[in-house]
């Protein structure tokens, strides 16, 4: 899989979440995702960036335009050095929340992507990678 462009964005405030959304949108248009797919990946980015801000103490988002030879897509990486997720399976369930939210964040974001993976160590941080293909 080849990466064409890569944007690295710090997420430290809710204004940064808006900036991440806008950049993801711009890249999604560039890749040629359909309007519905654009909306899905931008919404997923919004959920994941906010999650990172609220529970991971902020972090870094990387937006990559990728291709596997046959098709193009958008891959997003969210990395924080926060408390990590103890039980990933539980965190993916709808209704689960460690904060005040509705608890749709992770599970919801997963449903909006074609690929989704979480790598987390308690006390060290969390890395979430998701992708949407054309």
């Amino acid at each position: 899989m080849a990466t064409t462009t890569s944007d690295r964005m710090e997420v430290r405030s809710s204004d940064d979440v808006v900036r991440v959304r806008q950049q993801v949108r711009a890249r999604a248009v560039e890749v040629g995702l359909s309007l519905v797919d654009q909306t899905k990946i931008v919404t997923a980015a919004s959920e994941l960036a906010r999650n990172m801000l609220d529970y991971g103490g902020g972090g870094v988002t990387t937006i990559e335009v990728v291709s596997d030879g046959m098709r193009r897509g958008l891959r997003l990486v969210f990395e924080d050095t926060g408390p990590g997720i103890a039980d990933i399976e539980l965190a993916l369930k709808d209704g689960f929340t460690s904060g005040s939210g509705l608890g749709l964040g992770l599970g919801g974001a997963k449903r909006l992507c074609n690929e989704f993976s979480i790598d987390s160590k308690p006390g060290e941080g969390t890395r979430i990678v998701c992708a949407r293909w054309k």
């Binding site: 519905v36 909306t39 899905k40 919404t43 959920e47 709808d94 509705l102 749709l104 599970g107 919801g108 974001a109 449903r111 909006l112």
Partner: peptide, 9 residues
Amino acid sequence: AITLVELGL
């Protein structure tokens, strides 16, 4: 609307 439904809201 499609996205919101998918999200579970």
